[in-house]
């Protein structure tokens, strides 16, 4: 007799929401990766609760997977951050926008006329 399953869902959901807020709103690449970690943690919690709810060990096995993924993701993600920091001297995601092509006002106006 612990708690109803729904309460665990609410906990995991709230944790996930915090994680995504961190990943989306913080202006720092390290915090973005940290937010992803929080989200993975929320997933682990709900997997374990599910395993207990249906008395199946599959959920626990999956948590091992999540751990491995998290480790790998942190290793590569942080290596990427270091790499990017070396090249640009910044970890603010707003500086990594070279994919974005800002159209000029005249281009836009010409496009609307077409």
């Amino acid at each position: 007799m612990i708690v109803p399953f729904g309460h665990v869902i609410v906990l995991a959901g709230a944790l996930f929401l915090l994680g995504i807020t961190c990943a989306v709103c913080r202006r720092n690449l390290i915090m973005v990766v940290l937010g992803v970690e929080i989200m993975l943690n929320a997933a682990s919690i709900i997997f374990l609760a599910g395993a207990l709810r249906w008395f199946s060990m599959e959920g626990q096995v999956f948590v091992v997977m999540v751990l491995a993924i998290a480790a790998t993701e942190v290793a590569i993600g942080l290596a990427l951050i270091v790499y990017a920091y070396r090249r640009t001297g910044s970890v603010d995601p707003i500086n990594f926008n070279c994919l974005n092509e800002q159209p000029t006002g005249s281009q836009l106006a010409g496009f609307i006329r077409e």
Binding site: V24, P93, I94, F96, N97, N100, E101
Partner: peptide, 10 residues
């Protein structure tokens, strides 16, 4: 949309 989001990953 590109004008707004400034191409930022977040």
């Amino acid at each position: 949309a590109a004008l707004i989001n400034a191409g930022m990953i977040q």
